[in-house]
Amino acid sequence: MQQEQNNNNIILYACEGETHFGHDPFVYEHFIGIITSGSAHHFTDKGVVDYPSGSLCLVRRNQLMKAIKKPDGEKPYATITVFLEQKTLKEYSLEYDVKASGVYSGEPILVLENDAFMKGYFDSLMPYFDQPEKLTPILEQAKTTEVITLLLRNPALKNFLFDFSEPRKIDLEAYMNRYFPYNVPLTQFAKLTGRSLSTFKRDFVKIFNLTPEKWLQKRRLEQAHFLIMQKNKRPSDIYLELGFETLSHFSYAFKKQFGHPPTELQSISRASLN
């Protein structure tokens, strides 16, 4: 069972079962969030990062994320997330004369110390799980301003919060080979590589000699073949990880590409290990 109380910028979320990639993998706005129970496993190109209960993270906009959310026994996976929209941050910057000193170049996800002030802040939001209607727009605005001010106790976060520049044009080949498993629209890949959609498509064909749609499917299926044959992975365990929405769609595309279903390849892989 999943429960989400969305008050525009502040989301109170609880889910009793395990969820795989239970959100849009594209991060549209900065957010700060704390896991109040359960844990999350974040999949990156460098491996899996585990976030236990109590983890407090500041996450930068314009990036791709995948995670599995897990309950802790009878306790559901639950989080409190505060989105820091560009509009809100620009208004804060103007009102309090706080500006970035340059382009942010640090890590896109920062694990923060859950100090007494931050603990008190998130504790003050806990009652709204049971009475979300009490979190009025005025209170929500005040709580958003409060958390920005708390973050700015660390001056190093000014560039993180108040760098309003958009992604610059980057190496398309390297980026796509790193992020091909993410199932997001081409418009978002274009934005993240600093291109218009038309420029993205034109550059893509020049580099890969295929359209983005054909290359993405081919690349994902090749990776699936490798994981099943060389790593003995089950098709049901990898199709979501590789950007396919359903197991049936994955199986159909795999058979069309390789001439046999992924389950048959799995049998061959298992036989080779015996």
Rank of each mutant, 00 (worst) to 15 (best):
D45I: 01
D24Y: 00
T79Q: 07
G47M: 08
H30S: 11
M65F: 05
M65H: 05
M65C: 09
N62L: 08
E29F: 13
R60K: 12
E74M: 08
E29P: 05
F31M: 10
H42F: 09
P25S: 04
S53C: 13
P71C: 03
Y77C: 10
F43P: 00
A40S: 15
Y28V: 12
A78S: 15
I34K: 11
V59Q: 14
A67T: 10
D45K: 09
K46P: 07
T44W: 09
E29A: 13
F43N: 01
F31R: 13
K70V: 15
H30D: 15
E74W: 00
I68T: 15
S53F: 00
M65D: 09
Q63K: 09
G47S: 07
L64F: 14
A67S: 14
D50E: 15
A40T: 12
G47I: 05
A78W: 05
P76E: 02
D50R: 12
T79G: 02
G33H: 08
H41L: 15
V27G: 04
I68L: 14
S39Q: 14
G73I: 05
D24C: 01
K70L: 15
R61C: 09
P25E: 00
S39V: 03
R60W: 05
L64I: 06
I68M: 15
D24T: 00
V48P: 08
P71N: 02
I32M: 12
G54T: 09
L58M: 07
P52C: 06
D45P: 08
K46H: 14
Q63N: 14
P52G: 07
R61T: 04
I32D: 12
G73F: 03
H41S: 14
H30E: 06
V59H: 11
L56D: 03
P52H: 05
A78F: 04
V59A: 13
H42D: 04
T79R: 04
G73R: 02
L56Y: 01
I35R: 09
A67G: 07
Q63G: 15
G33Q: 14
Y51I: 05
D24I: 00
K70D: 09
R60N: 12
D24N: 08
L58T: 07
K69G: 08
D45L: 01
T79I: 12
F26Q: 05
N62W: 04
E74D: 11
V59E: 15
T79K: 07
K69A: 13
D45V: 02
Y28D: 13
P52N: 07
P71D: 03
D24V: 00
Q63E: 13
H30P: 08
S53T: 11
L56N: 03
R60L: 10
S37A: 13
C57V: 12
G33L: 06
Y28W: 09
T44E: 08
C57E: 02
R61V: 01
I68P: 05
E29Y: 10
